[in-house]
Write a protein that binds this DNA or RNA. Structure first.
Length: 115
DNA sequence: CCAGTGACGGCTA
DNA sequence: TTAGCCGCCACTG
C-alpha cells in the first residue's frame, strides 16, 4: 500500500477485501456487483485494481471474482496463468475456456445475499 | 499537465 | 448477435 493514499481510497480497498472474503466456497461474483454493493456503481475497474493490490494477501479469495459474464479475465494477474482456474476447480467450480460453467447458478450477489 | 492503459460494464449500431 | 464506444478513476510515462 502507498503512504500518500487518501483515507477514502484506503477504505474502499479494504471494503472490497471484506466483501471478497465473504464469498462462499464454490460460488463466484463479479467486479461490478462488488462495486455496486459498495456504492461506487460505475467503478468496477477500481475493484479489479484493488484485487491486484491484494495479490500479496493469500487470505483473499480473489479467484472467486470474475467479470459480468463469468470469464476469468484476471487470471494473468495470478502467480501462474492457470492458478485461478485450478483454485476454482478445487472448490468444485467447472471452468471451460476461461469461462465459469453455469455461472448464473453459482453467481453470488453481495447486494442480495449479504445483509 | 497530458495522454495512454486497464482483473469492467452499460449502451448503441 | 457481434463489435465498438465511452464513462468510470487510479496509476504511469
Amino acid at each position: 500500500m502507498k503512504e500518500g493514499m487518501s483515507d477514502n481510497k484506503k477504505n474502499f480497498f479494504e471494503d472490497v477485501y471484506e466483501v471478497v472474503r465473504l464469498i462462499p466456497e464454490g460460488r463466484v461474483t463479479s467486479y461490478g456487483a462488488i462495486a455496486s454493493y459498495l456504492g461506487s456503481k460505475g467503478s468496477a475497474r477500481m475493484v479489479g485494481w484493488a484485487l491486484i493490490a491484494s495479490q500479496p494477501f493469500a487470505a483473499i479469495p480473489a479467484h472467486r471474482v470474475v467479470n459480468r459474464v463469468g470469464m476469468l479475465t484476471g487470471k494473468q494477474h495470478f502467480e501462474a496463468s492457470n492458478a485461478m482456474q485450478e483454485r476454482l476447480e478445487q472448490e468444485g467450480i467447472k471452468v471451460e475456456n476461461d469461462q465459469v460453467v453455469e455461472f448464473e447458478k453459482l453467481f453470488w450477489d453481495p447486494a442480495k445475499e449479504l445483509l
